[in-house]
Design a protein around this nucleic acid. Structure first.
Lengths: 339, 339
DNA sequence: TTGTAGGCGTTATCAG
DNA sequence: CTGATAACGCCTACAA
């Protein structure tokens, strides 16, 4: 059960009777080693159970073959999907993932970033925020980094996000087609760029299509179920309720549906509801949420891909990748009652 | 935007005019350094932006101050909650988390374990399986490890799980009290010890309370929504349907509910359903699932705690921690119709 | 083709 | 109290 001593290069050298460097070269597959020597070394290494120490290699190479991934909370399903996407490509490229949860707290994030940099991660994937903080920005200059879902004009970094604008545009056109004219919108936290983008997209399309008084139908909140509940209170108290309401994410939408139903308002009969995200359970019949699907795992994978390229060539121009979204029509939207 | 060169101890030594070792001692807060020297060193280090390299320290100390966490898939919400729990205590103790997804695949798991060990993680949290594999067991002997949720008689390791037996016992007693006598059970994958435990607990309590013919009401499946759907087909085709069915996890239960409803069977009016897990959304009104709650984050935290203790003293006796579960009664269970 | 000699950044030991 | 030196395990010039 104990940690038996590591087998090192030196052990293999001693065992084979060869020099350290020969063993190292043989293991690295360098052509300067005679094939039979190489075979012998390989066999001996295998027999002794030799495995190179990545720690030593990292010190020597001044890089760790690891990525840091910073998120608010892995326990949040969307965040987990991103992480998974990052890992998908990281593993393939021989990288390991160091995970850090920030809980959205600035201090935790700064600490986590410091630790990750102290560990000499070769790159950082930041699915988080606080780009307005000076320390965060300064830390970001110390290591290749890719931003996911949220960006900031002050930081010029590779970025991967989803096409919130066209997603909302598509969905708003859809509800327009089925007759909705008064459409409400629940925002996310407006200091996050994704929430801003979604709100801006709502405004733009609402204006373009000519929805009725959209500005009065915006409820400001966060990406939470509770925000949805509160929004239901707000919208239901309006003299002229919207016939359709958009959440800024699926949790908003689910809270909205529950809040409405608690007030005797039926979805979609009385009000249609649209989410954004397409969480796993959105598809089950008990929920059956019409939503704008985000390809979170693909976004994470794309972020890792960008990071690999950036590490490979730190001076290449910054890239911005916007992945498409897709409207998934399910049971929480219905045509406006012609009555 | 570039990776400016690291400030090392040597730089601080040069800047202060002191010896390397003095600087190191000062930074480490050793009492052998004169307070004013120490203060001077600290100030200079701060000014230069010195941060110790964890990589170098790891090589020297032969430990990495990091935990490896192996799970099937972070994108699975329960797994993510475990990971979060592990991180909660790891961070507090100065450890970083290296994450590995196995997708339940043996080869991936072996590779991930190897990589983690090559990185000299100080301990492993294994929320996974394949303990029947020789290589896995041999790798587990190379590093302190804690098993979570699944164990194997052949591996004597620290273990943290939840009290499946008493959870099911409590829930079965509850449905007995409200009149159910024919109770079905959907199993998880029986090669997993948690699924076995749950099935065994069902059998034991069913026998004890005297449920009607429990053996004929067991449906073997996996921890998936699809299993629930299939189970609905099985149970509904029975000449004498159970009045209550237990899933082995919440996804089972949700699939079951959907499958039953597709066949015109209403929950809980016609059949009661009980889950196990208490996923985030189980509480929303649209789902409102009666379930046996597992404290996943607490389990992860307990695992990390055990690991810390084991690292601190590798020779202490093995520990097994069984965390309590709690029956959460919601809307998918109802008394048997007395008619 | 093989061997020797640093050095990556720390920390621990031991001498001054 | 401070400083020199070695060692952790690996890799890579360069020398033989």
């Amino acid at each position: 059960m104990q940690d038996q001593k590591r087998v090192t290069l030196k052990d293999v050298a001693r065992e084979t009777g060869l020099a350290l460097s020969t063993v190292s070269n043989a293991l690295a597959g360098k052509s300067l080693v005679k094939p039979e020597t190489r075979a012998f070394v390989l066999a001996t290494a295998e027999r002794l159970g030799y495995r190179a120490s990545i720690v030593a290699r990292s010190l020597r190479a001044q890089r760790s073959f690891a990525f840091g991934v910073l998120i608010e909370d892995v326990a949040n399903p969307s965040a987990a999907a991103f992480v998974r996407g990052v890992e998908d490509v990281a593993i393939g490229a021989g990288y390991t993932i160091l995970l850090g949860n920030t809980d959205g707290d600035l201090e935790r994030q700064v600490n986590a970033m410091r630790t990750l940099i102290d560990r000499q991660v070769d790159g950082l994937v930041l699915i988080s925020q606080h780009l307005d903080d000076e320390r965060v920005r300064s830390l970001l200059s110390k290591v290749p980094a890719v931003l996911v879902q949220r960006r900031d004009a002050r930081v010029a970094l590779d970025y991967v996000g989803s096409d919130n604008a066209s997603g909302l545009n598509e969905a708003l056109r859809y509800v327009w087609r089925i007759g909705h004219r008064r459409v409400g919108f629940v925002t996310g936290p407006l200091k996050s760029s994704s929430a801003q983008e979604r709100l801006a997209a709502f405004r733009a399309t609402a204006a373009e299509l000519g929805f009725t008084d959209p500005e009065s139908l915006i409820f400001e909140g966060r990406y939470s179920f509770e925000t949805g509940l509160a929004a239901a209170g707000f919208f239901s108290s309006l003299p002229d309720m919207p016939s359709c309401i958009f959440g800024s994410n699926d949790l908003n939408a689910l809270g909205l549906i529950q809040g409405l139903s608690e007030r005797g308002i039926r979805v979609p009969r009385d009000v249609s509801v649209v989410g954004l995200d397409d969480i796993e359970l959105a598809a089950i019949k008990a929920i059956d949420l019409t939503t704008i699907r985000l390809e979170k795992r693909a976004i994470g994978a794309a972020a890792a891909g960008l990071l690999l390229k950036r590490i490979d060539d730190p001076d290449q121009p910054m890239q911005t990748l916007i992945l498409p979204t897709r409207l998934v029509v399910r049971g929480t939207t219905a045509p406006v009652d012609p009555s």
